[in-house]
Nucleic acid binder design. Structure first.
Lengths: 153, 153
DNA sequence: CGATGATAGACAGAGTATCTGACTACCATG
DNA sequence: CATGGTAGTCAGATACTCTGTCTATCATCG
C-alpha cells in the first residue's frame, strides 16, 4: 500500500507532469537505439547531435547552442570521436578552432534516432489520436516560448 | 549566424519538445527557491519530497516510488537530513527499517515549492491562457499514461 | 608592424547524481 | 531454530557537469 503523498494528483506540478513522460520517452528511445546498434550513445550526447551542422560545427558554437561549457561539450565530443560518431578537423579559417563533423556512423545514428522517435510518436498517436498529439506538440512549443520570456512570473 | 541543424523545426522530436520547457521550468523554479531561502535543495531532491508520506516513509519505499536504488535514495535522504529537511526514526514495527519524516523546514520547503510552481504556472496561464494550460496538463497526463503502457511501439 | 586584448580549446581538479556488488542486521516462515 | 528474504550500509565506479587556469591563435589599434 502506498500512503498518501504530499503532492496529491490535483496538485501535481507542471514540472512533474513534464518530467514523467520525458523520462519514459528517453528510456524507451535509448533502449531501442542501444538494441538497434548504437549502445554507446546516451541521452547527454543528444546535446551534440541536436546542434551539429551538416558542414561541421566548432566546439564553442556547439557549447553555446547547447548551453553547456566548452569543457563539457569537449567531454561529450571526445567520447563521440572515440566511438566513431564524429571526426575533428582543423578549421581552415581559424588556427585555434576545430571543426566537429558527423561521420557516416554519426549520420546513421541521427537517422535511427529520428526513426525511433517517430515510432514512439506513432504509438502515441495511436493511443491519444493524432489531433491530440499535434495539440500537445503545439502547446509544448508555446509553453517553451513563454518560459523563455524573462517577463514571466 | 547559426548554421542549419540536422533537426529542422518540423522534425523536432517530442523528447526535445518535452525537455526544453522542463529545463527552463526547473531552472526558474530552483533559482527562485534558492533565492527564497532554500539554496541547498537541488532538483534531484524532489525525488524525496515528491513521494514522502506525511506520517513518514521508509527508505526502500521512497526508492521504489522514485525508481531509484536504495543507495541513491539513501544518498539524497542523507543530504536532506544533514541540512535539516528530514529526520530519521527507527520504525517501531521493523527493527531493520527507518522512517524518513519531514521536519518543519522540509514542510516549509514543500509549501514554497508548490507556491513557486503555482506562480510559474500563473505566468504561463497569463501567456497562453488558462484553457490551453489546462489542456497541456491533461495531454501530458495522457501521454505519460500511454508511455507507461508497454504495448506502445 | 608590433602590442594588447579577446577567443578557441586543453588540462587539472572538483562535485553531483546515479549505478553495481558485497555486506550486516533483522524479520518471517516452516 | 534454521533458512531464506528484506532494510539499510559500505565501498567503489561511472557519467556529466562545473570552475579555474593555461597556451595558442586571432583581431584590432596605435
Amino acid at each position: 500500500m502506498v500512503p498518501s503523498a504530499p503532492f496529491p494528483d490535483q496538485a501535481r506540478t507542471l514540472g512533474a507532469l513534464l518530467r514523467a513522460p520525458y523520462r519514459k520517452l528517453a528510456e524507451r528511445l535509448y533502449a531501442g537505439l542501444a538494441a538497434g546498434g548504437f549502445p554507446e550513445i546516451r541521452p547527454a550526447h543528444s546535446a551534440v547531435f541536436r546542434h551539429i551542422a551538416p558542414e561541421g560545427s566548432r566546439l564553442t558554437d556547439l557549447a553555446e547552442q547547447a548551453e553547456l561549457t566548452k569543457q563539457s561539450m569537449a567531454y561529450l565530443v571526445g567520447y563521440l570521436e572515440e566511438h566513431g560518431y564524429v571526426s575533428l578537423h582543423p578549421d581552415p579559417n581559424d588556427g585555434r578552432a576545430k571543426q566537429v563533423r558527423l561521420t557516416r556512423r554519426g549520420q546513421a545514428f541521427i537517422a535511427a534516432l529520428l526513426k525511433a522517435s517517430a515510432a514512439v510518436e506513432d504509438g502515441l498517436a495511436a493511443a491519444l489520436g493524432a489531433t491530440k498529439l499535434k495539440q500537445l506538440r503545439d502547446l509544448l512549443e508555446q509553453a517553451d516560448a513563454a518560459l523563455a520570456d524573462d517577463q514571466l512570473g
